[in-house]
Amino acid sequence: MTVAALAQETAPQPPASSLGKLAWQWRHNPKLELWLSWYTILVFYNVFGIVFFGITRTQPPPKAWWDLPKIVWWFHDKGWGLLVGFGIIFVMGAFATASTALITYSIRRMSVSPAFAWSYLILYSLAAVPGMLLTCIALVTGAMRPDRDPRLMGLLYDMGFLSFSGTMGIFLIGSVVWGVAILLDENAILPKWFGYFNICNALTEVVVATCCVLKSGPFAWDGVIAFYINMVVFGIYTGLFITYLRKMIEREDMDSPQVRGIR
């Protein structure tokens, strides 16, 4: 059956009950695939926030200037939270791909070369490995044996937090790719100012580079500039793109040749 034939299906009226409505959405909502991705993004970022800020308490990050006894104490103090919290990330961390997929879709809907979309898809599919999972692996390896040689605990601590903050290029180039696509786009898929905001998000990845050199002060990985300002920009950026992707889905005309054309 073609997509056109699918679109011509006559959907019955949704039933009154909540479960019935859900079943109707599953069966007949023409935007189901887009909404499933969008809600997956919502769930992912909520779990991500709860794990990193609540369960593991790795955000805001501990100090880069701590000495070895303090680092060993930190692993002892956070041990159970690190093992359970990052276990949750190891189960559901790759559902972030839904976000990458929906943003890739948004770029495919734009009047730009598909090369922008494929660049974004590949860059962000790669991002989770150095930018999130390597952090979790290092800190879990530390937490599983807190009686390890303190010098090695220090190494795992640095590996964890530097891979998290120091994975810059993927997010830098990825944000620029999406931003430039938005600015070039003539189909008005996303607002132009959000294209500029992408460039702003990319610049935070330039500023954070200091965390690879400095161990204290505003430019360290826990500092006002390298962490707090970055986190504020990233938080606003994430909130904005979730909102604007929702608006994009609401506006989509699934029967339009533009939407059918990217199948």
Binding site: M1, T2, V3, L6, A7, P30, K31, L32, E33, L34, L36, S37, A94, T97, A98, T100, A101, L102, T104, Y105, R108, L121, Y124, S125, L126, A128, V129, L133, M254, V259, I262, R263
Partner: peptide
């Protein structure tokens, strides 16, 4: 597949490299 969008293809492609890359690490 008879989908309306390529979203699920993108989701699947996004997962392809991660597992083998981590195994390689």
């Amino acid at each position: 597949m008879a989908h309306r969008t390529p979203i699920l293809t993108y989701c699947f492609i996004g997962c392809i490299a991660g597992g083998p890359t981590l195994f390689c690490i």
